[in-house]
Amino acid sequence: ELIWEQYTVTLQKDSKRGFGIAVSGGRDNPHFENGETSIVISDVLPGGPADGLLQENDRVVMVNGTPMEDVLHSFAVQQLRKSGKVAAIVVKRPRK
């Protein structure tokens, strides 16, 4: 059984690379294997702001206090874009 651990990460936006993450998932883009609608970190740019803080497959729980459960992919992207220079991101990942 999976035990999820929650992490809060504060990312500083890089002028060229943004937050250095890509997200997939969302209500309109469920996971191809299990139908899960979570917003998921799909890519972490090496050397970017999120490197060492976020991991691929982290589930995004909140962005700047806005819940990311059962939202559209575009909504999640929009929340990240409009967060200015700093984003507080809450993620969960299975305990190893």
Score class of each variant (00 low, 15 high):
residue 61 V to D: 04
residue 4 W to L: 12
residue 49 P to E: 01
residue 23 V to M: 12
residue 82 K to T: 09
residue 92 K to D: 11
residue 34 N to P: 06
residue 28 D to H: 07
residue 37 T to N: 15
residue 17 R to W: 14
residue 9 V to C: 05
residue 62 M to S: 14
residue 92 K to L: 06
residue 57 N to D: 13
residue 52 G to Q: 06
residue 43 D to F: 14
residue 33 E to Y: 06
residue 84 G to V: 09
residue 72 L to D: 13
residue 52 G to R: 05
residue 5 E to N: 06
residue 77 V to M: 11
residue 9 V to L: 10
residue 34 N to M: 10
residue 82 K to G: 07
residue 37 T to I: 04
residue 25 G to Y: 02
residue 58 D to H: 00
residue 49 P to A: 07
residue 82 K to F: 11
residue 6 Q to T: 10
residue 29 N to H: 15
residue 74 S to P: 05
residue 13 K to C: 06
residue 62 M to G: 14
residue 30 P to R: 04
residue 53 L to E: 06
residue 13 K to E: 09
residue 14 D to R: 05
residue 24 S to F: 02
residue 33 E to T: 15
residue 32 F to D: 06
residue 83 S to D: 05
residue 95 R to K: 13
residue 90 V to K: 10
residue 30 P to D: 03
residue 69 E to P: 02
residue 96 K to D: 06
residue 65 G to Y: 04
residue 63 V to H: 02
residue 81 R to G: 15
residue 87 A to E: 02
residue 10 T to N: 12
residue 93 R to I: 02
residue 8 T to N: 03
residue 75 F to D: 07
residue 28 D to L: 04
residue 53 L to N: 08
residue 95 R to D: 06
residue 58 D to F: 02
residue 5 E to S: 07
residue 70 D to V: 02
residue 78 Q to H: 11
residue 32 F to L: 11
residue 42 S to H: 07
residue 59 R to E: 04
residue 77 V to G: 04
residue 12 Q to H: 14
residue 21 I to Q: 02
residue 44 V to I: 08
residue 72 L to T: 14
residue 47 G to M: 05
residue 88 A to R: 14
residue 17 R to S: 15
residue 83 S to I: 13
residue 75 F to G: 02
residue 82 K to L: 11
residue 51 D to S: 13
residue 45 L to Q: 08
residue 96 K to W: 06
residue 39 I to F: 01
residue 15 S to D: 15
residue 83 S to P: 09
residue 17 R to T: 14
residue 41 I to P: 02
residue 91 V to A: 05
residue 73 H to E: 13
residue 78 Q to S: 09
residue 13 K to W: 08
residue 43 D to K: 11
residue 59 R to D: 01
residue 42 S to I: 06
residue 55 Q to H: 09
residue 35 G to E: 09
residue 95 R to L: 10
residue 15 S to V: 12
residue 89 I to H: 00
residue 88 A to D: 08
residue 30 P to F: 10
residue 55 Q to I: 10
residue 91 V to Q: 02
residue 14 D to K: 05
residue 26 G to T: 03
residue 66 T to K: 12
residue 61 V to T: 08
residue 87 A to C: 11
residue 73 H to Q: 15
residue 18 G to A: 08
residue 83 S to H: 09
residue 16 K to F: 09
residue 60 V to S: 01
residue 79 Q to G: 06
residue 27 R to C: 13
residue 18 G to R: 06
residue 29 N to S: 14
residue 33 E to R: 08
residue 49 P to R: 01
residue 37 T to W: 02
residue 20 G to T: 01
residue 2 L to D: 14
residue 59 R to Y: 05
residue 46 P to I: 10
residue 66 T to Y: 08
residue 55 Q to T: 08
residue 78 Q to T: 15
residue 85 K to I: 08
residue 84 G to E: 15
residue 66 T to P: 01
residue 78 Q to C: 13
residue 64 N to Y: 02
residue 2 L to Q: 08
residue 95 R to P: 08
residue 48 G to P: 00
residue 27 R to W: 10
residue 37 T to P: 07
residue 95 R to N: 11
residue 19 F to T: 03
residue 60 V to C: 03
residue 17 R to M: 15
residue 59 R to V: 11
residue 55 Q to G: 04
residue 53 L to D: 03
residue 65 G to K: 08
residue 53 L to A: 08
residue 3 I to R: 05
residue 94 P to C: 12
residue 14 D to L: 04
residue 31 H to S: 07
residue 86 V to S: 13
residue 46 P to H: 05
residue 57 N to T: 06
residue 22 A to E: 14
residue 35 G to D: 10
residue 73 H to T: 11
residue 58 D to R: 03
residue 70 D to K: 08
residue 41 I to Q: 03
residue 77 V to I: 13
residue 36 E to N: 14
residue 46 P to N: 13
residue 15 S to I: 07
residue 7 Y to C: 11
residue 35 G to H: 07
residue 49 P to T: 00
residue 49 P to M: 06
residue 31 H to P: 14
residue 37 T to F: 04
residue 52 G to A: 06
residue 27 R to L: 11
residue 19 F to P: 01
residue 36 E to G: 10
residue 78 Q to P: 01
residue 32 F to P: 15
residue 71 V to F: 00
residue 21 I to W: 02
residue 88 A to I: 12
residue 47 G to Q: 08
residue 94 P to S: 14
residue 13 K to G: 06
residue 80 L to H: 02
residue 57 N to P: 02
residue 68 M to C: 10
residue 56 E to W: 05
residue 79 Q to I: 09
residue 24 S to P: 01
residue 95 R to Y: 13
residue 25 G to N: 02
residue 56 E to C: 11
residue 96 K to Q: 11
residue 63 V to Q: 00
residue 64 N to C: 03
residue 15 S to G: 04
residue 53 L to Q: 07
residue 78 Q to N: 13
residue 66 T to V: 12
residue 84 G to H: 13
residue 43 D to W: 15
residue 23 V to T: 07
residue 16 K to V: 13
residue 91 V to W: 00
residue 91 V to D: 02
residue 28 D to E: 10
residue 15 S to Y: 12
residue 61 V to E: 11
residue 7 Y to F: 15
residue 28 D to P: 03
residue 3 I to Q: 03
residue 87 A to K: 02
residue 72 L to Q: 14
residue 82 K to C: 09
residue 31 H to W: 06
residue 82 K to N: 15
residue 54 L to Y: 04
residue 30 P to A: 05
residue 8 T to I: 07
residue 31 H to I: 07
residue 86 V to A: 10
residue 66 T to S: 10
residue 51 D to H: 10
residue 57 N to E: 06
residue 45 L to V: 14
residue 78 Q to K: 11
residue 43 D to R: 13
residue 85 K to Q: 13
residue 18 G to S: 14
residue 69 E to T: 13
residue 31 H to G: 07
residue 9 V to S: 00
residue 71 V to R: 06
residue 14 D to Y: 03
residue 82 K to D: 12
residue 73 H to R: 10
residue 93 R to A: 02
residue 42 S to E: 07
residue 14 D to V: 06
residue 41 I to D: 00
residue 15 S to Q: 15
residue 12 Q to S: 07
residue 44 V to W: 08
residue 25 G to H: 00
residue 54 L to W: 03
residue 65 G to C: 05
residue 62 M to A: 11
residue 30 P to S: 09
residue 24 S to V: 15
residue 22 A to K: 08
residue 1 E to D: 14
residue 22 A to L: 14
residue 26 G to Y: 00
residue 33 E to K: 14
residue 42 S to V: 11
residue 40 V to M: 15
residue 6 Q to C: 04
residue 32 F to R: 12
residue 10 T to M: 10
residue 22 A to Q: 14
residue 48 G to L: 03
residue 48 G to M: 02
residue 87 A to Y: 02
residue 77 V to F: 03
residue 7 Y to D: 07
residue 3 I to P: 05
residue 62 M to W: 05
residue 19 F to G: 02
residue 83 S to F: 06
residue 75 F to C: 15
residue 75 F to Y: 14
residue 10 T to Q: 14
residue 88 A to Y: 11
residue 9 V to P: 01
residue 62 M to E: 09
residue 51 D to W: 06
residue 20 G to D: 03
residue 2 L to I: 12
residue 69 E to R: 11
residue 49 P to F: 01
residue 47 G to S: 07
residue 62 M to L: 07
residue 14 D to T: 15
residue 25 G to M: 02
residue 51 D to F: 09
residue 83 S to A: 09
residue 45 L to R: 05
residue 96 K to S: 11
residue 2 L to N: 15
residue 57 N to W: 15
residue 72 L to P: 14
residue 57 N to V: 02
residue 23 V to E: 00
residue 30 P to H: 04
residue 10 T to R: 11
residue 89 I to R: 01
residue 15 S to H: 07
residue 37 T to Q: 05
residue 53 L to R: 08
residue 85 K to W: 07
residue 39 I to K: 02
residue 35 G to S: 08
residue 79 Q to N: 08
residue 55 Q to W: 12
residue 22 A to N: 14
residue 20 G to R: 00
residue 31 H to R: 11
residue 56 E to V: 13
residue 93 R to M: 01
residue 28 D to Q: 06
residue 1 E to P: 15
residue 87 A to L: 13
residue 88 A to S: 11
residue 82 K to Q: 13
residue 39 I to D: 03
residue 56 E to K: 12
residue 87 A to G: 09
residue 43 D to I: 07
residue 45 L to S: 11
residue 93 R to C: 00
residue 11 L to I: 11
residue 9 V to A: 06
residue 27 R to S: 14
residue 66 T to D: 05
residue 58 D to C: 03
residue 69 E to C: 11
residue 16 K to Y: 14
residue 83 S to Y: 06
residue 93 R to W: 02
residue 86 V to R: 10
residue 80 L to F: 10
residue 94 P to F: 14
residue 72 L to A: 12
residue 64 N to E: 03
residue 69 E to I: 13
residue 90 V to Q: 09
residue 16 K to C: 15
residue 29 N to V: 07
residue 36 E to R: 06
residue 23 V to Y: 06
residue 36 E to C: 10
residue 53 L to H: 08
residue 23 V to C: 08
residue 76 A to P: 03
residue 77 V to L: 14
residue 30 P to T: 06
residue 10 T to C: 05
residue 63 V to W: 15
residue 64 N to Q: 02
residue 76 A to H: 01
residue 81 R to A: 14
residue 54 L to D: 00
residue 37 T to R: 14
residue 73 H to M: 13
residue 35 G to R: 08
residue 35 G to K: 09
residue 73 H to C: 09
residue 58 D to N: 01
residue 61 V to I: 12
residue 92 K to W: 07
residue 91 V to F: 07
residue 54 L to R: 00
residue 16 K to I: 10
